[in-house]
Write a protein that binds this DNA or RNA. Structure first.
Lengths: 189, 189, 189, 189
DNA sequence: GATGAATGAGTATTCATTCAT
DNA sequence: TATGAATGAATACTCATTCAT
């Protein structure tokens, strides 16, 4: 099956896109990384852009699926939010390269593909917003602007790819606790 | 004076970099935008990369200066944080193109310049962290991990360039209030 | 085999470099000469400079190898010098374009490559000097300054690319005889 | 008078042409060297090429004039040759930069100017040849091919710009003696 | 005399993609 | 499936020269 090679290519591409950026990565670079000739690569990929799209799409899809399964659970809004934050940060950090490519490089996609990613990101935002409105509805939360609040939470979580270092002292779980505490209780004593 | 033309060029570059991205913007595009021949542009700029650097550097500098003057004020930590958030969001939104270029395109800079920007961003992070530790010291705040908490706040604020739309219902001031409330009081009722 | 095309390119380059000079020859010129697109050329060459280097290096290498095999022979110093002059002039004239490029254009190389050529030319000079000192040692020659004398002989021989015309009345062999007679016997009756 | 500035420019150009080569020297480089703006330079020069032509022309002219005055003297052919060699080498070494530009860079001139230089060089060659035929006529020399022999002598002398180093142990006078001895007496004991 | 803005043609090199073998 | 030759458009940047002020 070619799926093996295809996967190998995608992995190599993610690593290169993360390191050098999508534009600065040449098809030659990817071919070198998997030990193929540039021409041979095109047996497995449609185009360099499509390769990026596959990576980004797969990434945002996993985020969405993960969050959907959390929303389906029968737990309090507070617990949903905590799990969302933990799951989001864990996935971001465990797949740091992919996440970096998703948030940093998807802008290099053409209009069409870019919009697909944007729509899925929006969907994700809606799910987070839903947790907040749920919490408001059942009296757990006080939120004046659920959508903007969701954007604040997401911004904080998504910014992680820019500063997280695997050699740092805090792991995904630690960071999740700090974030949850901040968003649930605030800074004020 | 050449400062006029130079400014015109920088403004055109910011606009183009924001719209198409740095890599996808050609020197020709910039020349066209200011009505000069490609070659003539080089009377005013050193290189395309340097142009980006000037833009990014100027942007992060303004953020830093603004925050420094807030820190110098004789007000509570809480008030400092509120002002920081308001100033940050206001500047981000009033100069949305520049801010977008700063956070999205600086990665395209070469190692040296990129590090300069990174160092200045770090400085900004330190200032925010300082507000938090100050608040902890005088009993205003409860913060377990000031640096990570600062990164959360900054992430939320910096993510704004990705979703803010000038035709939206909320302006910088509205968003600042939402953010401040979230970070100070948390979601829990 | 690509060696064919590569050779064709080198030959075309030599001809063009000789006619117009290295700087005045564009990559486009070379591409046109071999019937390729400018971009296609880069399958075969690393850079225009590298192409020049290959040509110059190959040329000086052949000079050196030729002289080394003469020095290895068990003949008198006088005969070595005569053979050296004959071999040098013959090679210069039979490969006049290459020799011209070697002596006239190698200066356009960057520091590193230029030094490589310089070192090999020096080696050649040393070999000629060796013939002279050998002749002095066994009483054949009288030479006060072997190195400067070698430089005089080499200068005379290398200057040939500047005046030799294939339609002239003298061939390489004739010129060799004249040179040998001059250097061995001098002008004085 | 502008002749001052004009001279300053020519001197700066010679130095730069010698160091970097004519093609690699920009008009900007020359302007910088004399503390003028690029545009201002054109009050003093016609074109970059003309500047090179002036330098080369002046140089070859001096060689010719010098040799002509030697030929006019009432001395033996042998002495004429010795003086020619001494004068040629002295001028070459005392004006090493100019001489280098003459022999190395004149090829970059356009067809017309290049031919002017070539014709003057030819004239020089003729004068040297004349010394030889004179020496043959009065029984001082034995020369089968005066023109080729003259080319050998000139080649040896002109090659000097390629190897002479001012920090070497031999000065122009020393080298002249070695050359004269070689050409007059030959190597053979 | 001096400036510096403007030109416009020119340069080497890169690169994603195609396709015959 | 794999190759590698070929494309052709694109790219940032340079430079000698002109000219209005």
């Amino acid at each position: 099956m070619s799926s093996n090679k295809q996967n190998e290519i995608a992995l190599a591409a993610v690593k290169l896109f993360e390191q050098k950026g999508y534009r600065a990565t040449s098809v030659q670079d990817i071919a070198d990384a998997v030990g193929l000739q540039k021409g041979s690569l095109y047996h497995y990929i449609t185009s360099k852009e499509d390769l990026l799209m596959q990576i980004a799409h797969q990434a945002i899809l996993q985020f969405n699926q993960q969050l959907q399964s959390i929303l389906a659970e029968d737990i309090s809004a507070r617990e949903k939010l905590e799990r969302m934050i933990r799951a989001h940060l864990t996935m971001s950090i465990e797949n740091l390269e992919t996440t970096t490519v998703l948030w940093r490089e998807a802008f290099s996609l053409g209009e069409g593909p870019q919009e697909v990613i944007a729509r899925m990101s929006d969907e994700y935002l809606n799910l987070v917003t839903q947790i907040l409105t749920e919490g408001v509805a059942n009296g757990e939360f006080q939120v004046a602007e659920p959508r903007v609040t969701a954007l604040a939470i997401l911004g904080a979580c998504n910014w992680v790819y820019r500063w997280y270092q695997s050699n740092g002292s805090l792991d995904a779980s630690d960071i999740s606790s700090v974030f949850s505490n901040l968003f649930l209780n605030g800074l004020l004593r």
